[in-house]
Nucleic acid binder design. Structure first.
Length: 296
DNA sequence: CCACAGGGCGGCA
DNA sequence: TGCCGCCCTGTG
């Protein structure tokens, strides 16, 4: 592995804490210098915002080109999307949304790896974030590739990391092995999902070209993937911005602001009508605002 | 210390 | 149709 480095001018209000703690990812950690380090598909990234510059270090394969590294970072952090404009559209005549955006305006919807998101959000069902992170770490340590970092210049990259296992690597685990990783009753869902990816019964690549509804239908065929989990996968790894995952926090805040119903399907419908193609981004502002301000 | 949230699914009433 | 248990950790 080799250390890469790149730097960007800060893009409209990007905020690392908002982005990495708003519930979309499980493998990012804050360091003492306020930088964030996270393991992504094929390597490790360390990001810090200083003097209005976004400085990014990374550990990736020796053969990777500098231009590829820059492309990976831009794509992962969704730099191509105009969040300011989207915020304007979804908060028109809506003071509640304006308040939520004010609170979480630095959020970016990450473009993460679909396979990793599939397993991570199956793990998330009836679970809390600290345990989800721990479980994903267990899986990665046991089945993922270890990254050596001896020659890294950035102190935040000078320890060992484990990539999330490929379907082939995770395919070696038995249901009992998975239970040992602290998956609990979700062990069999992860086992079956891995088998279906390996046999191409679920072709994760093909979902990229499907529209939102069709892709959601495909994902929902997997045991352990319900409406909410499917929407998380579509939003956080396929950039399907109309996906609106409804969990307990979203139910609460939607009831406080917009609609008098506890029915997830009704809430989802309402959101699609109100926020349209940007429902998922609206969801992230509402979710983050509600969870960080736990008043009832 | 205990009660309960987490939000998918299968089983049971 | 609606509710409980599953597995286990974190929070109040």
């Amino acid at each position: 592995m080799k250390e890469f480095y790149t730097c960007f001018d800060n893009i409209y209000d990007l905020n690392l804490k908002d982005t990495f703690t708003c519930g979309q990812c499980f493998r990012w950690y804050e360091n003492e210098d306020a930088s964030y380090t996270g393991v992504i598909k094929d390597g490790v990234l360390n990001i810090i915002i200083k003097n209005k510059k976004i400085a990014v270090s990374g550990l990736f394969d020796d053969n990777m080109k500098q231009s590829d590294f820059e492309k990976i970072v831009k794509d992962y952090l969704d730099f191509g999307r105009d969040y300011k404009e989207i915020q304007k559209v979804i908060s028109k005549n809506d003071d509640s949304m304006k308040e939520a955006i004010k609170f979480g305006k630095g959020i970016r919807i990450l473009n993460q790896d679909p396979w990793e998101m599939l397993i991570s959000f199956i793990t998330s069902a009836c679970n809390n974030i600290p345990r989800i992170s721990k479980t994903i770490d267990n899986i990665s340590k046991k089945y993922g590739k270890r990254i050596k970092v001896d020659d890294a210049k950035n102190p935040n990259l000078r320890r060992e990391f484990y990539l999330f296992p490929t379907p082939n690597e995770l395919g070696k685990a038995s249901v009992e092995d998975l239970r040992g990783c602290n998956l609990g009753f979700r062990d069999k869902y992860v086992f079956e999902a891995t088998k279906k990816v390996l046999t191409k019964e679920l072709d994760l690549n093909s979902l990229k070209n499907m529209d939102y509804m069709k892709a959601k239908k495909e994902l929902s065929k997997i045991a352990g993937v319900g409406s909410k989990v499917a929407d998380c996968i579509l939003l956080f790894s396929y950039s399907k911005m109309e996906a609106f995952p409804v969990d307990t926090w979203i139910k609460q805040i939607m009831n406080e602001i917009y609609i008098d119903s506890k029915n997830a399907k009704k809430i989802e419908e309402y959101a699609h009508n109100k926020f349209g193609e940007y429902a998922g981004i609206a969801q992230q502002y509402l979710f983050y605002y509600k969870r960080e301000n736990k008043k009832t």
